[in-house]
Amino acid sequence: MSELDDLYQEVILDHNKSPRNFRVIGGANRRAEGYNPLCGDEVTVFLQVEDGVIKDISFQGSGCAISKASASMMTTELKGKPESAAHELFENVHNMLTGEPGSEGGGARVGKLAILSGVCKFPARVKCASLAWHTMESALKGEPQPAKTE
């Protein structure tokens, strides 16, 4: 039972219920769509990047509580950060979600996102949590194809 409580913590449930930055950025200069073919989760990430800094970031789409909360927390974490920090956080979050050795709990390297660390106990849900991150990464890189978690 504690694993389930770990997964669905209050903060995650709150981000699911009231996702932050859940909107379209009209003139976004970076944008990408992400899709999880396994379950049909869809997300679009919008970014306004100026002089290498993420001035604004938002998302839209449909998915489970984990994918929505992860996307929501990602936007709050990345707003105002330099692009390089976003790449770094992507790597660190990815390692935490997939349970890479040494990434237990996330620690300082993922900040508040450590709350998502419970996901690694649920292998079937890792892709839910990582979808928005893959999509953000692909938007920053300007990749033409929709991001996939596969």
């Binding site: 039972m1 694993e3 389930l4 669905y8 049909g40 998915g63 079937a124």
Partner: peptide, 29 residues
């Protein structure tokens, strides 16, 4: 207000195996 995946994960914790997803029938969804 609850996505099928979250339903599936919680049911699994109770020992109940169901399928959560589009069931390879996306046009039906």
């Amino acid at each position: 207000h609850v996505h099928a995946h979250d339903v599936g994960t919680i049911l699994d914790q109770e020992g109940v195996a169901v399928r959560a997803g589009h069931h390879c029938a996306m046009p039906v969804m």
